[in-house]
Design a protein around this nucleic acid. Structure first.
Length: 749
DNA sequence: AGCACGCCGACT
DNA sequence: GTCGGCGTGCTC
C-alpha cells in the first residue's frame, strides 16, 4: 500500500552532473550548495543520499536534496558517499516540507532523522605520508590529526584526499553470545541439562546473548562451557542486542472494538482525529498498530513522555498478536537508542513507540503514525531548545502525506485547530467514543468569599477521606506565590508596566511582578470595578497543601514533577500533570480561575481540557471552585460536552485570525534594542510579501535576565508566514549580537 | 605607519 | 559553522 507522492525527489541523479547538497550545519544562513558529482561516485546517489563535501577546505557531512536547478556554479566535487546513513527519499520530502512550513533550518530537520550520537569527527586514513604514525585504513579523530599535523596539515591532507571524513555511529558494547555450530552434534543423551539449553538456543534462532540464555533456562555457566567444549556451540563476542520485544498476545480481545475504525483509517490513509476516552487510548493505539502490521507495514506511535512510551510498549506486548516486534525510542535509552534506530530503519521492528525525539525516525515500510494525547504540550519542543519547535502531530501529518501513510491523533479533547475546515490540513474524524463514566460535578461559587478553601470543599474532602478513599487536589502552580483578585468581580491585580499578574510571596504584604521585578504594596482598589475587597487567590500548591492540612487536621500529600511526599495520604495536592496521571475517588480544583482567566491563543481550550481530564480521573466527584460559575468553557467541560466547545470556540478562532483559519509566527529576538528595531523595521518589514502583517517589537522584561523583543507575524496563508519567519531568522543569523527564535503556528501565545 | 579587534559576508 | 577581509581606532 505504498502511495508514492514523489514531488521532486524520486528521480535518480546520475552522470557527471551537479547536485544540491544540504550540509548538516544547523543554521538559517546557509542554503543547500551545488557540487559536482564525479562519475566514479554517481551510482546509487539519489535525493536523500548522505555525502561528504568540502566547504572552505573542510569536509562536511551533507544530504543530497536533488539535482542542481542552475548547473554551472558548482566547482567543488563531492568527496565520498556514505551509503549506510541515507535518508529515505519520502522522508526527505517530508523534511523539506517541514523545514519550509515551520521555518526550521533544513539541516536541523535532517539531523533529527539521523542515528543519535553520530560521530562526524572521524577520518579514514586513505594514503598516509611516510612520516605519519597511522596506517592506511585506520580511523583517527579530527583532534588527533590536528595535534599531529596542525590545522593546515589537516586541511592539506583533506584537500589531497589523503584522509577522508568517515562518520560512524557509536560502537555497541559487545557481550558474549552463544551460537549453535552447524555440523555433527555431540551425543547429549546423558546430559539432559545441556540438551535442554541447546534446544532453547535453537528455538531462539540459534544465537542469543549468553546471559539471556542462562536466565531463560535457569542453567549455570558451566553448562555453556561444557557445550562449547563439546563443539555444540561457540561462545563469541558480539554487539549487545537492541532492546526489541516480541509480542506475546493475550490481550487482543480488548482491542476488538477499535479495529474496524482503525482499519478504515489505515486503509484509506491521510490524517485523522479520533476522540475517545483517555483510558481507551492504549487499545486504540494497538488497533492502529495492528492494522498497519497486518498490511506488512510499520507503525510509529508518538507519546508525550517517556513513561507513557514505556507503558504503551508494555501494553502493545500483550495487545498485539504474537510474532511482532515492539520497541521504545526515547532519550532514556542511552546507548541502546542507536541500535533501536538501526532496527527500525532496517524494518526489524513492526511497531516503534517514542517521544517527540522519534518523530522523524526513518521507517523501512511506513504504514501508520499515531499521536497519543495529541494536545499535550510535550509534543512540541520549545523554540531555542533541543528538538524541533514543531508539534509531532504536524511532523506526522507531513510524513503521512509524503510517505503515503495514515496519521491518527488520539485524545478525548483534541486541539481545536484540527476541527476547522480550511486549515493547513484537512483532517478526517473517526467516530468519537463517549466517556465511559462521568462523575457528579459540583461547581462552587466563590464570589463574595475571601477564603481559598470553601466549606463545601473541606466537607467533601472529609467525607471521602473518612470513607478510606482518595482526593486529588489540582493546583497548577508551584511554591507559595498567590495572585491578588477582586472578590467582587474576579479581576486580577496586574503589573502596571508589563501586565503580568502581581504575586504575593510567603504571605507578605508586598506584591511582586514575576516578569519585571516591580514591587508594590497590596493596598488599593480593583482597576476594573473599584471595589476595595481584594484578596489573595490562585494559591500555589504548597500553600493549598498547608491550608488543607490545617483545616482537615491531617497530613496532606504532595505530588509535583520534582517532589513526592506522603503520596498515599487520603488527600494529595499536586500539579495537573501529576494528579491527572492517577485515578481518584474525587478530584478538586480549588482555583480553576487561574486557568480560566488566562488569555490568548489556546487558553480556553486548555481550561476546558484541564476540567475534562480531571473529570476523567475522578470516579465519584469533581469539585471546582470559581468566581466565574457561568463561564461557558467551565460549564461545557463539566458536562463533558466537547461539541459545545467546538461550537463556541471555533468561530472565535476564525474571527481572531488564529490557526488554522489564518497563520502566525512568533519571533523572539534577543539582543540590543537598536539592532532589534533595525532588523525588524529596516530589513524584515520592507521585505515581507503582501498580506503579511508584522507587529511592532514588544519588549518582554524578565526578572534578573536581559529583556527580549517579541514580534508577531500573521497572514491568511501559511507559506508567506513561514517565509517571513525564516527571513527574520536569517536576518538575525547574519547580524552579530542578535539571536532569533521563531515558532510558526504555536499552540499557545 | 603598524597593529589589534570586531563586524560582515562568503563559502558551492 | 568558520574563516578571512577590512574598517575603526589605538599605539609607537
Amino acid at each position: 500500500m505504498v502511495r508514492a507522492t514523489g514531488r521532486r525527489t524520486d528521480r535518480v541523479v546520475h552522470g557527471q552532473e551537479s547536485i544540491r547538497v544540504a550540509l548538516l550545519i544547523p543554521t538559517h544562513a546557509l542554503p543547500p550548495l551545488s557540487y559536482v558529482l564525479p562519475d566514479r561516485l554517481s551510482s546509487g546517489v539519489r535525493p536523500g543520499t548522505v555525502v561528504v563535501a568540502p566547504l572552505s577546505g573542510r569536509s562536511r557531512l551533507g544530504v543530497v536534496v536533488g539535482p542542481d536547478p542552475q548547473p554551472g556554479r558548482a566547482w567543488e566535487e563531492i568527496s565520498s558517499v556514505q551509503n549506510g546513513l541515507s535518508v529515505p527519499p519520502d522522508l526527505l520530502e517530508a523534511c523539506l516540507r517541514i523545514s519550509e512550513s515551520y521555518a526550521v533550518p533544513l539541516p536541523t530537520v535532517l539531523r533529527a532523522t539521523f542515528p543519535p550520537g553520530l560521530d562526524a569527527g572521524r577520518f579514514l586514513v586513505v594514503r598516509p605520508d611516510t612520516d605519519w604514525s597511522w596506517e592506511a585504513g585506520s580511523v583517527v579523530s579530527r583532534a588527533e590529526i590536528k595535534r599531529a599535523l596542525g590545522p593546515d596539515g589537516l586541511r592539506a591532507a583533506e584537500a589531497g584526499g589523503q584522509v577522508s571524513l568517515s562518520p560512524a555511529v557509536p560502537e555497541r558494547k559487545t557481550v558474549e553470545w552463544s551460537v549453535v555450530r552447524g555440523g555433527a552434534e555431540p551425543d547429549l543423551g546423558r546430559a539432559p541439562r545441556q540438551r535442554e539449553v541447546l534446544e532453547a538456543l535453537k528455538d531462539r534462532g540459534g544465537a542469543l546473548p549468553s546471559a539471556a540464555l542462562l536466565s531463560r533456562t535457569g542453567a549455570a555457566r558451566s553448562v555453556l562451557r561444557e557445550l562449547a567444549r563439546r563443539g555444540a556451540i561457540s561462545l563469541v563476542r558480539r554487539p549487545e542486542p537492541a532492546p526489541l520485544f516480541e509480542t506475546s498476545g493475550g490481550g487482543e480481545e480488548e482491542v476488538e472494538p477499535f479495529r474496524r475504525d482503525a482499519g478504515r483509517a489505515v486503509g484509506r490513509g491521510g490524517p485523522f482525529v479520533w476522540r475517545l476516552p483517555t483510558g481507551e487510548q492504549p487499545d486504540a493505539v494497538a488497533a492502529v498498530a495492528r492494522a498497519a502490521v497486518e498490511e506488512g507495514e510499520q507503525a510509529l506511535i508518538l507519546a508525550p513522555e517517556r513513561e507513557a512510551v514505556d507503558r504503551l510498549v508494555r501494553h502493545l506486548h500483550r495487545a498485539l498478536p504474537p510474532g511482532h516486534t515492539v520497541a521504545a525510542y526515547h532519550g532514556g535509552l542511552g546507548r541502546d537508542r542507536g541500535a533501536v534506530h538501526a532496527a527500525v530503519r532496517d524494518g526489524q521492528v513492526s511497531v516503534v513507540v517514542g517521544t517527540r525525539a522519534a518523530a522523524l525516525l526513518p521507517l523501512a515500510r511506513p504504514g501508520a503514525f499515531c499521536v497519543v494525547d495529541e494536545p499535550d504540550g510535550s509534543h512540541r519542543a520549545e523554540a531555542g531548545y533541543e528538538g524541533l519547535p514543531v508539534h509531532t502531530r504536524d511532523v506526522a501529518f507531513a510524513r503521512g502525506r509524503a510517505e503515503g501513510a495514515a496519521v491518527v491523533c488520539l485524545s478525548p479533547v483534541p486541539s481545536l485547530r484540527l476541527f476547522a475546515a480550511g486549515g493547513r490540513t484537512r483532517v478526517g474524524e473517526l467516530p468519537p467514543r463517549p466517556p465511559a463514566e462521568w462523575p457528579s460535578v459540583r461547581i462552587v461559587d466563590m464570589r463574595g468569599s475571601g477564603s481559598v478553601l470553601s466549606s463545601t470543599l473541606l466537607d467533601a474532602c472529609r467525607r471521602i477521606a473518612a470513607g478510606g478513599r482518595r482526593v486529588g487536589v489540582i493546583v497548577d502552580r508551584l511554591g507559595y506565590a498567590a495572585v491578588v483578585t477582586c472578590n467582587r468581580c474576579g479581576a486580577v491585580r496586574r503589573c502596571p508596566g508589563c501586565d503580568a499578574p502581581l504575586a504575593s510571596h510567603d504571605g507578605s504584604r508586598l506584591l511582586a511582578c514575576s516578569r519585571c521585578g516591580l514591587r508594590e504594596s497590596d493596598e488599593g482598589r480593583c482597576a476594573e470595578c473599584g471595589s476595595d475587597r481584594l484578596s489573595p487567590a490562585g494559591s500555589a500548591v504548597e500553600r493549598v497543601r498547608e491550608g488543607l492540612a490545617e483545616a482537615l487536621g491531617e497530613p496532606v500529600g504532595l505530588i509535583t514533577a520534582g517532589r513526592r511526599e506522603l503520596d498515599d495520604a487520603s488527600v494529595v495536592a499536586g500539579t495537573a500533570r501529576c494528579v491527572l496521571r492517577e485515578g481518584w475517588d474525587a478530584v478538586v480544583i480549588p482555583d480553576v480561575d487561574s486557568s480560566l482567566r488566562a488569555s490568548g491563543l489556546g487558553a480556553t481550550e486548555r481550561s476546558f481540557r484541564l476540567i475534562y481530564r480531571a473529570a476523567e480521573v475522578a470516579s465519584d466527584l469533581l469539585l471546582v471552585q470559581t468566581r466565574a460559575p457561568g463561564h461557558h468553557a467551565l460549564l461545557a467541560a463539566a458536562r463533558g460536552d466537547y461539541e459545545a466547545l467546538v461550537a463556541s470556540e471555533v468561530p472565535l478562532l476564525r474571527a481572531a485570525g488564529y490557526p488554522p483559519f489564518a497563520h502566525l509566527a512568533v519571533a523572539s529576538l534577543h539582543g540590543p534594542e537598536e539592532k532589534v528595531l533595525f532588523a525588524v523595521e529596516s530589513r524584515l518589514r520592507p521585505a515581507v510579501e503582501a498580506g503579511v502583517e508584522v507587529s511592532d517589537p514588544v519588549g518582554v522584561a524578565r526578572a534578573g535576565r536581559p529583556p527580549f523583543w517579541r514580534v508577531l507575524i500573521r497572514a491568511r496563508r501559511p507559506d508567506p508566514v513561514a517565509r517571513a519567519a525564516a527571513l527574520v531568522a536569517r536576518i538575525a543569523a547574519g547580524t552579530h549580537g542578535l539571536r532569533a527564535r521563531v515558532e510558526v503556528d504555536p499552540e499557545e501565545v
